[in-house]
Amino acid sequence: MKKYTVLILAGVKTSFKYRFKIITSILFNSIYLCLLYFVWRSIYNDKITISGLTFLQTYTYMCISTVLTYLYNSRTDWKMSMRIVNGSIISYYTKPLPVQLQFFFEAIGNVCVIFLLVVMPVVLVVLRIRQLGIYMNFVFFLFSLLLAFTINFCMEYIVGTIAFFTESLWGIIILKNTLISFFSGGLIPLRLFPETMQSLLQWFPFRCIIDVPISILFEPNIGIDVIFALIVQLTWAVVLVLVSQLFFKISEKVLTINGG
């Protein structure tokens, strides 16, 4: 347990090492949320609801999706690509933990800071505004958040592993971020998508990252829909963990480190 704690603390220290980055990120996200308010206010105009969502519900959804997107941004794919290209990835092989677990707990350390400083205050405000108590839906929300982070991390890990085959991942990472943002509910609530697409997306891992945790947070009663969403999340988390491990094991065979 101690070795995991050391990695988490290392991630926390790394985050606080770049305090200015945290402050500026919070500032820019605040400005972005203000802009979102006016954008969605103009979209609704004189409409009371769109696809069954009021302006307040949509804007609250977008606020949570924005901070969750920020929360998941551990940049594991960038870190892996840089360390594979410059050869420093070899240091991970000298430690008594699988490479994936080392990156995972480092990422947890990074997001712990963001969770406490950004996500929790926003979530508590939302619970207050919507007059939701901190009861079972919040507990399920936290569990869903952990699964969502795991799914997102595995996607980043898989993309980062591609660096074994190419020196630049910039385009691939941008494409991955775009797909996740659009199909997870990060840019537009999935309730506003056509019903056919909504039905299709519920089986894909993208929805599990943003839409599922928010839907659980807004659901005062834990019903079959919540349980089903959690089962889908858990299934994708397990599948992606196994796929990312297998892909890394296959890919690392092409690693070549030159130097003395």
Rank of each mutant, 00 (worst) to 15 (best):
L124H: 03
F38W: 11
V238G: 09
G223I: 07
S251Q: 05
T196W: 13
V39S: 00
L255Y: 00
M62P: 02
V122S: 12
I162H: 08
K13H: 14
M1G: 11
T5N: 03
F204H: 01
L242P: 06
E156F: 07
I257T: 05
G109Q: 13
L71P: 01
I50K: 03
L117M: 14
F149Q: 02
V243F: 00
F28P: 08
V241S: 04
Y135P: 02
E252V: 08
L200A: 15
S88D: 14
L56C: 12
K21Q: 06
I210L: 05
Q233V: 13
V159F: 03
D225F: 07
F165Q: 00
T60E: 07
V123H: 03
F38L: 12
W203Q: 04
G133A: 13
N258G: 14
F149V: 04
I250P: 06
V238D: 10
T235C: 08
Y32V: 11
V226K: 04
V12Y: 12
S88P: 05
I134A: 07
L187S: 01
R83W: 12
L175Q: 10
Y93N: 05
F204G: 05
I174R: 12
F165V: 05
D211N: 06
V241N: 04
A107F: 04
M155K: 01
I188Q: 00
K47S: 09
S30A: 15
T256S: 06
M80K: 00
S215H: 09
T49N: 14
I224D: 05
M82H: 13
N86K: 06
V241M: 02
V226D: 05
T49H: 11
Q131C: 14
T58M: 07
P98S: 15
